[in-house]
Amino acid sequence: MHAPIPRRTTTVAALLRTALLALLATLVVTGPLTVPAAAAGGDVTWTVRTAPNGYGSDRSSFAYGVNPGGRIDDAMVVANRGKQPLTLAVYAADGYTTDAGRLDLLTRDKKSVGVGAWVHADRTNVQVAPGRTVRVPFRVTVPDNATPGDYVGGLLTSLKQADDAAGINVDRRLGIRVKLRVSGALRPRLAVEDLAVDYHGTATPFATGGATVTYTVHNTGNAVLSARQNVTLNGPFGWLKARTGAVAAPPELLPGERWKVTVPVHEVTPAFRLTASVTLTPLLTDASGSVSPLAPVRATAGGWAVPWTLLIAVLVLAAAGTTWLLLARRARARRAERENARVRQAVQEALRTQETQTH
């Protein structure tokens, strides 16, 4: 997969402007290249593509199945679309998935241990005349002790230029994705980790609220995987099921990588206890490009959904009712005491009258 990958290193600039340029420099495009990569002034353009050979005549990327200790010879074609001669650095680097879900490649100063360490071009620099193309052969050499599974990286061309106006050095990179599948036991596995539910109530006592389900998809196997995802949220005993909507598929994750997923859920009934269930169906792509679904992976976790406003209202009503009952009881007691006092007084007066009459 063609991937123009610009890089910029700050030298002298205002902090704000440098920060903005550095942010723009992190942009990575990982689809097949549709336009040439252009330098800052637009006067330097070049493209890269796979060389037609026994591996294919119209490949968008390099992909191989290889045994430990195996070797593969292939080539990349570099074309100069500009009007000036070009001298480009050539090197390989390991790949990784960015927070935006795109494939990026390590910079040259970072150590590679897979594709970047095993792919070697026959030169470290290539010179291309205006309007001409140059074929750059390379060899993939897999160590004898290479662990089975998938490895992803890229073969890159790089042009460094000074931008005096901006006060920076611009490193423009244009490359092609390289995927290796080292033969042996393939163990495609995904895991759901750190599953949690967070309920957000409302001020209206009898209204539904919202919830957020979060979890991490972890590629614990040795194959590149994506997945279909399904999330459900239920109340006690499976009642009061909430709508989660469609959950976007994670990007293809390289072995060992993690991807954080956040799913907002609306119209959640505060049923005191919620249960979130996540089902992942791993998707494995074979050498021909066919995608096969694997056995689903499931996980569940609970969270509290206490209707605090309603609960407070109920407690206030209960306290008011209890207070009313206590006051009513006290009033009845006072009335009974007054009645008893009147009875005692009447009895005493009757006794005094009887005693007077006797004497």
Rank of each mutant, 00 (worst) to 15 (best):
Ala75Ser: 11
Leu155Val: 10
His200Pro: 05
Gly321Glu: 13
Asp122Met: 13
Pro255Thr: 04
Leu294Trp: 00
Val142His: 00
Asn53Ile: 04
Ser60Met: 06
Gly65Tyr: 00
Ala271Arg: 00
Leu280Tyr: 04
Val113His: 10
Gly131Lys: 03
Val247Pro: 00
Val263Pro: 03
Gly289Phe: 06
Ala341Phe: 07
Asp194His: 14
Val316Pro: 04
Thr300Glu: 15
Arg172Ala: 08
Arg273Ser: 13
Ala318Met: 09
Gly114Met: 02
Leu311Gly: 07
Ile312Cys: 08
Leu16Asp: 15
Leu326Ala: 14
Arg334Asp: 10
Val128Pro: 03
Thr244Val: 08
Val213Asp: 00
Ile5Tyr: 15
Leu105Tyr: 14
Arg172Ile: 10
Pro293Ser: 09
Arg173His: 13
Ala38Phe: 13
Tyr64Asn: 00
Ala75Val: 06
Ser60Phe: 08
Val247Leu: 01
Ala63Ser: 10
Pro85Met: 06
Asn234Lys: 14
Pro264Glu: 03
Ala287Arg: 09
Thr98Val: 00
Leu33His: 07
Arg173Thr: 11
Thr322Leu: 13
Pro148Glu: 06
Arg352Thr: 06
Ser292Gly: 06
Gln357Lys: 10
Thr202Leu: 07
Val291Trp: 08
Ser288Asn: 11
Arg17Thr: 15
Thr285Val: 09
Thr275Met: 08
Arg123Met: 12
Leu27Asp: 13
His359Leu: 10
Pro85Lys: 07
Asn80Gln: 12
Gly154Tyr: 00
Gly321Leu: 11
Arg344Asn: 13
Gln357Thr: 11
Val265Ala: 12
Trp46Gln: 05
Gly101Gln: 08
Pro255Lys: 02
Leu190Val: 07
Pro236Asn: 04
Gln348Leu: 14
Gly245Pro: 03
Gly56Glu: 05
Val182Tyr: 02
Leu174Tyr: 02
Thr208Arg: 01
Glu257Lys: 07
Thr214Asn: 10
Val213Leu: 04
Asp150Tyr: 04
Leu88His: 04
Ala248Asn: 13
Val247Ile: 05
Thr50Pro: 03
Trp46Pro: 03
Arg334Tyr: 02
Thr220Gln: 06
Ala203Arg: 11
Gly238Val: 04
Asn67Val: 15
Leu180Ile: 01
Val128Ser: 03
Arg7Asn: 14
Val90Asp: 08
Val182Phe: 03
Val35Ser: 14
Lys111Thr: 15
Gly31Val: 07
Ala248Asp: 12
Ala295Val: 12
Asp194Tyr: 10
Ala301Gln: 02
Val29Glu: 14
Trp46Thr: 07
Asp94His: 01
Leu86Trp: 01
Val35Tyr: 13
Arg344Trp: 07
Thr275Ser: 09
Val35Ala: 15
Ser292Ile: 07
Gly184Asp: 09
Glu267Lys: 12
Arg49Ile: 02
Arg298His: 14
Pro293Asn: 05
Thr216Val: 14
Leu155Ser: 06
Leu326Asn: 08
Trp118Arg: 04
Asp164Ala: 15
Ala331Leu: 05
Asn145Arg: 09
Gln229Pro: 00
Ala22Lys: 09
Val265Leu: 10
Leu86Val: 03
Leu351Gly: 09
Thr216Tyr: 09
Ala271Glu: 01
Thr141Ala: 13
Val78Tyr: 09
Ser277Gln: 15
Val314Asn: 11
Ala196Leu: 08
His200Val: 12
Val113Arg: 13
